[in-house]
C-alpha cells in the first residue's frame, strides 16, 4: 500500500469517528475529480455545485456504511453520479448531450497560477484539450474525464458508471479516435518536442 493510500484510509477512519478536519482533507483530495465528473454531464453550474455539495454531505452521513476505507475514491464518485441522475430526474433538465459554451470552457481551462513565460502556451493547450473533450458525446466525456483526466483505472470507471468493463473500453476507443483527429497536430508537436 502506498503512503497516499495509507493516509487516505486513516482520513476515512477518522472522519467516520466524527473528525471534520479529516473529512475536509478528503474533500480537498477528491473535490476536483467529483466536480469534473459532474461537470462532464451538466451545463448548469449551480446544479453542479449542488450535486457536489450533496455528494459530500451524504458521504459524511453514510461513511459508516463504507466497508473498505480504501474504496472512498470510487465510492464518492459513485455517490455523486447517482445523486446527479436523481437530481436530473427531479428537475427534468437532462443536458447530457449539450455542449459547453466555448467561453465557459476557456475560463475553466485557465491555469490560476501559470508559470512565467510558459503561461500562454500551457493555458492554450489545456483549453484546446478540454474543449475537445467537451465536444465528445456525454457517455464518452464521462469515461475520458474519469480515466484520463482524473486517473481512475478502467475497472473502477465501470464501477462508478455502473456499466460493464467492455462498455467502458468501447466508449474509450471511440472517444480516443475522435480526440486523435481533433488534437492530432498538438500531439505531433509534443512528440517532436
Amino acid at each position: 500500500m502506498s503512503d497516499r493510500d495509507a493516509l487516505e484510509e486513516d482520513l476515512v477512519s477518522r472522519a467516520r469517528k466524527g473528525d471534520a478536519d479529516a473529512f475536509r482533507q478528503l474533500y480537498d483530495r477528491h473535490v476536483g475529480g467529483v466536480y469534473a465528473l459532474i461537470r462532464a454531464s451538466l451545463r448548469d453550474r449551480d446544479m453542479v455545485d449542488d450535486v457536489v455539495q450533496m455528494a459530500f454531505v451524504r458521504a459524511w452521513d453514510r461513511l459508516g456504511k463504507l466497508r473498505d476505507d480504501a474504496a472512498f475514491r470510487v465510492w464518492i464518485r459513485q455517490l455523486a453520479r447517482r445523486i446527479m441522475v436523481d437530481e436530473i430526474r427531479k428537475r427534468r433538465v437532462r443536458e447530457a448531450d449539450s455542449l459547453e459554451e466555448n467561453e465557459e470552457i476557456g475560463n475553466v481551462a485557465v491555469d490560476p497560477a501559470p508559470a512565467p513565460g510558459d503561461a500562454l502556451g500551457r493555458s492554450e493547450t489545456a483549453a484546446r484539450v478540454r474543449d475537445a473533450v467537451a465536444g465528445l458525446p456525454a457517455h464518452q466525456r464521462e469515461v475520458v474525464t474519469l480515466h484520463h483526466l482524473d486517473g481512475i483505472e478502467v475497472k473502477a470507471v465501470a464501477e462508478v458508471l455502473d456499466v460493464p468493463l467492455g462498455t467502458v473500453l468501447s466508449r474509450l476507443a471511440r472517444a480516443r479516435a475522435t480526440l486523435q483527429r481533433k488534437l492530432g497536430g498538438m500531439m505531433n508537436e509534443g512528440m517532436e518536442g
Partner: peptide, 14 residues
C-alpha cells in the same frame, strides 16, 4: 502521446 496530454491537463480547477 494523447494519453500523456490528457493526463497532463488533468481535471479543471473547481
Amino acid at each position: 502521446a494523447l494519453d500523456g496530454l490528457l493526463r497532463a491537463v488533468g481535471t479543471p480547477p473547481v
